[in-house]
């Protein structure tokens, strides 16, 4: 482009990363995990709802089935990533104090990893026994 309507260099335009240096990566990851969640959520809800009022034996039998365990793992990981960046957007919208914002975004990341990690560990333990 030979237009001088922008101050940005051609290289900067090609890279498309903008001032945040991450381009549309955040937006795209939110959409990617949203597609995954929209598909996996039906299986997840089906498992949770069908285990309502069931015994431990029945729960272990269902949750340790490879297909169920894989779908549960995929959903909990995808959902953890999705909710982490979703909550980050909310924090960035409403928390204006810089220090507080950094602390909140950090705590948000810890929360998402802790919840996701706990779910993954629990599902694997149910599958592999012990």
């Amino acid at each position: 482009m030979l237009s001088n309507s922008t101050m940005r260099t051609p290289l900067s335009r090609v890279r498309g990363l903008g001032s945040a240096k991450s381009g549309t990566g955040h937006f795209w990851l939110q959409r990617l995990t949203a597609v995954a969640n929209a598909i996996l959520v039906i299986a997840f809800l089906g498992v949770v709802v069908s285990l309502f009022g069931r015994s431990h034996l029945q729960a272990v039998a269902l949750l340790s089935h490879p297909l169920v365990a894989i779908l549960m793992l995929l959903f909990t990981v995808s959902a953890a990533v999705h909710m982490r960046i979703g909550m980050q957007v909310i924090i960035e919208d409403y928390v204006h104090h810089e220090g507080l914002k950094i602390a909140a975004v950090m705590a948000n990341t810890f929360f998402a990893i802790a919840v996701g990690g706990a779910c993954v560990f629990a599902i694997l333990k149910l599958s592999f026994g012990g």
Partner: peptide, 12 residues
């Protein structure tokens, strides 16, 4: 999500 994690950990 915290409740889901607690429920799964309880099962495990």
């Amino acid at each position: 999500s915290l409740l889901v994690a607690m429920w799964l950990v309880a099962a495990a």
